[in-house]
Structures are given as structure tokens and as C-alpha cells.
Design a protein around this nucleic acid. Structure first.
Length: 282
DNA sequence: CATTACCTGCAA
DNA sequence: TTGCAGGTAATG
């Protein structure tokens, strides 16, 4: 499931490969609905044709391909979406929905087994609205232990639910939320508003550590993630919580448990991540 | 606040 | 044959 490190891995490869290239063809495969327009009355395929890719960007899990004349393609991979770089004459890949032909005889292909992912043609107003809707990037200096705790104090519900909310912090998904909570020893069902500033600090440091490690490893390939060259990421073997239910905690040896929190499969250590505050020894 | 829809390969 | 996987939007 592509989260921030996976999307950033894709962005870096795409950036060094297609920057400056011009779109020479747009070919739909079995699910044309993958390409949308956020600008009413504008045909996305016709509009992107013959424009060049002038910059790439990322905001949370959204990948942006900025074209000339002020329009952008906003890509969201959701769960099983993939962007691939292949020669223009290559056969369609499995689950391919869109082929974007480039003027160097390469194609940027979008494939998605489950058809949840989208490529949206957007103007600057749409990009700005997206930017405002999302919370800070995890590495933003404006995000501090104090600001995080402050946000959490005014929020109902469980910490895991809060961390999955892209308007609190942008870019975390189920894998890195579980990893971050495990590293910071916070129970996923802890009520957000009860976190101390010390815990918020631990949590923020854990989030940054977990994401940086994943990015260094070019993402977590648990089931299907691949970079645009079809290569897997190597972060899966570094995961300490996600996918390890029933296995021993690498800190204390207890058996990791699996529950459902915020509607998501959740793995945690019942000993290292007690439901009480770690500061509460009563 | 919680649940469901959207999808479909794959494990059980 | 059933149900799980999960990001986001849309419900209830």
C-alpha cells in the first residue's frame, strides 16, 4: 500500500526520468475512468496532450506532475496503483489503464488491479485546495511535539484514527502508523487527547524515523508495491509491528497481538504499548 | 462517532 | 465459498 515513502520513491524516479519530456499520446486501456478532470468541461486527455512535464511534486500520498501552461496531473495510487516506465512499444502491463506516451519513446503507464487509484487533471486552484485540506508534511519544521499534542487535544477518538487522518499529518497509512506507534510505545487505542507532550514528542520522532528508514529502503514491498522500473522496495524486512502479529516483540519477546482499530488491521505489543500512559505508574 | 462503498486477487 | 487487504469519500 503506497504511503509517503513509496510515493516519494516513485516521484524521485519519475523526476529524474521524465522531466522536460513532452506528452505525445494518451492511450486508454481497460478502465478509462482512471483519468479524470477536476476542471468542469475540460477533457483531460486532450488537454495534457503536447504539454511538457516541467516539475514533479508530492503532497502526502499525492504525486504531482506539473505540466506547462499551468495544469498538473495529480496521481493517487490508493492501494494497488502503480506508475511504470516502459518503452513505448512494450505490451500493456497487467491491469494497465492508461499509457502516457513521451517524446523520448518511453511511456508512463498507470496500472491498478483494483481500480481505486486516479489520475486527475488539475489547475492551480485544485492543487491549492488539496494543499489546504492536508495536514503538514511529517518533516515540516512547523510540525512540533507541541503543535501535534495541541491538535490531538482537541480531537475525539483514538490515536490510530487520528494518525490515519490526512488532515492531521499528511502521508501516513496503516503500515507506518502501526510502526510509529510501536516505536513510540503508544497503544493504538489510546485516546488522542490524553497524550502528554512527552508522548507526542516520542511519537513525532518515531514517525520521522520510520518514514526516513522506509524512504532509504525505497519503500515497503509487502504485497505489490513496485517503483516505476518494476523494482521492489526493501523496507519490509525492517518492519517491527506491521505483518508480525503472533510473532515475538523485538523489544520484549511478548507475542504481538492483532486487533481492529479504526476499521483497520492493527498489530501492536500489549506489553510495550500498554493502554495506560507510560507516565502513569499507579 | 462508526460503517459502507469502491475493487479484485488471494488466502483460508 | 467466504472474507480479508486498505485510502478516501460518502453515508448513517
Amino acid at each position: 500500500m503506497p504511503e509517503l515513502p513509496e510515493v516519494e520513491t516513485v516521484r524521485r524516479i519519475v523526476d529524474q526520468t521524465i522531466l522536460g519530456r513532452r506528452i505525445t499520446s494518451v492511450t486508454f486501456r481497460d478502465f478509462p475512468g482512471v483519468l479524470e478532470s477536476s476542471i468542469p468541461g475540460i477533457d483531460p486527455a486532450a488537454t495534457m496532450l503536447n504539454r511538457s512535464i516541467v516539475a514533479t511534486g508530492r503532497r502526502g500520498k499525492y504525486l504531482m506532475l506539473h505540466l506547462d501552461k499551468g495544469v498538473s496531473l495529480v496521481v493517487h495510487l490508493r492501494m494497488t496503483g502503480r506508475l511504470l516506465l516502459v518503452p513505448h512499444d512494450a505490451e500493456p502491463v497487467r491491469f494497465e489503464h492508461l499509457a502516457i506516451g513521451l517524446d523520448d519513446a518511453m511511456d508512463l503507464r498507470f496500472a491498478d488491479q483494483r481500480k481505486f487509484g486516479r489520475i486527475t487533471l488539475a489547475d492551480s486552484g485544485t492543487i491549492d485546495a488539496l494543499d489546504r485540506k492536508l495536514g503538514p508534511e511529517p518533516d515540516s519544521p512547523r510540525l512540533t511535539a507541541s503543535s501535534l499534542q495541541h491538535s490531538l487535544q482537541r480531537r475525539p477518538g483514538k490515536i490510530k484514527h487520528a494518525l490515519l487522518d490526512q488532515s492531521l499529518i499528511a502521508g501516513l497509512g496503516n503500515i507506518y502508523v502501526d510502526e510509529s506507534l510501536y516505536r513510540s510505545r503508544i497503544n493504538p487505542e489510546r485516546i488522542s487527547r490524553t497524550l502528554t507532550v512527552e508522548e507526542a514528542s516520542r511519537l513525532l520522532r518515531a514517525i520521522r524515523h520510520v518514514l526516513r528508514l522506509a524512504l532509504e529502503n525505497q519503500g515497503t514491498t509487502f504485497s505489490s508495491f513496485e517503483n516505476p522500473y518494476g523494482e521492489s522496495g526493501s523496507n519490509a524486512s525492517f518492519l517491527r509491528a506491521y505483518g508480525r502479529a503472533g510473532q515475538p516483540c523485538l523489544r520484549c519477546g511478548s507475542t504481538l497481538e492483532r486487533t481492529v482499530v479504526a476499521g483497520r488491521g492493527t498489530t501492536y505489543c500489549p506489553v510495550c504499548q500498554p493502554i495506560e500512559s507510560s507516565l502513569d505508574h499507579s
